[in-house]
Design a protein around this nucleic acid. Sequence first.
DNA 1: CTTGCACCTCACGTCAACGTCAGGTCGTAC
DNA 2: GTACGACCTGACGTTGACGTGAGGTGCAAG
Lengths: 118, 118
Amino acid sequence: MRIGQLARRSGVSVRALRYYEEQRLLESARTPGGQRDYPDEALERVQLIQDLFAAGLSSRTVVELLPCVSTGVATPAMLDQLITERDRIAARIRDLNRARTKLGRVIENVTAASVVQD
Amino acid sequence: MRIGQLARRSGVSVRALRYYEEQRLLESARTPGGQRDYPDEALERVQLIQDLFAAGLSSRTVVELLPCVSTGVATPAMLDQLITERDRIAARIRDLNRARTKLGRVIENVTAASVVQD
DNA sequence: CTTGCACCTCACGTCAACGTCAGGTCGTAC
DNA sequence: GTACGACCTGACGTTGACGTGAGGTGCAAG
């Protein structure tokens, strides 16, 4: 599978895929002509990377954690980092819930005011 | 209240406070000598700004929404934007929950594997 | 009056995850 | 053999929320 097709299937840009390779997040075989050739599993890999990015992990963190995420084997240090990241995400979720609640109240306020105006 | 004290009380940097002013998120009176002088309400304001930033809103969005957040009065367009942002936050929370669950499973996996090794 | 910390205004630097452009190559269909 | 889209490698540009000096001023204390 070539890079354009992987890009379309995964929904990320060609540039992003090359960036992932540069960051050692994703490998590729090469055709004799030098073009990237991905196996089918690359699709899952890319989706996993996207999930971790979406969770706010940096590429440095992802490259450190990807091995144990895909193999299930981790050193104590990696386990620590996994837990740290999970807790960071949980904290972020709490922040977002606070903000959402706050915005929700503002919306109620505003809506109520406009109802009064009707 | 001067900028250093506001910074310490709110937990944001002096630079950030000046940046907020530059972005029209925060006003300040000036002493005859040209130094910023904040009223006590500035503290809540800064915390509100931080909450909205933490929720992933840009300073442009915040500057558009701050008036109705503090006054409770909004145009229909502002209400739309409020709802859009709230929904965006909700979607982000769903993403984060997915990622957290995923990491949680990885942690379980890894932990189980090490238990087996014991 | 001078020490010295807090404050001021530019204005360039940073960092991550790509976007974008230049200039050249691959591969396959005609 | 040529047309042409997909691909290649640099390498510079972008964006947001500040960080970080440089060089100068405000102000309360001794």
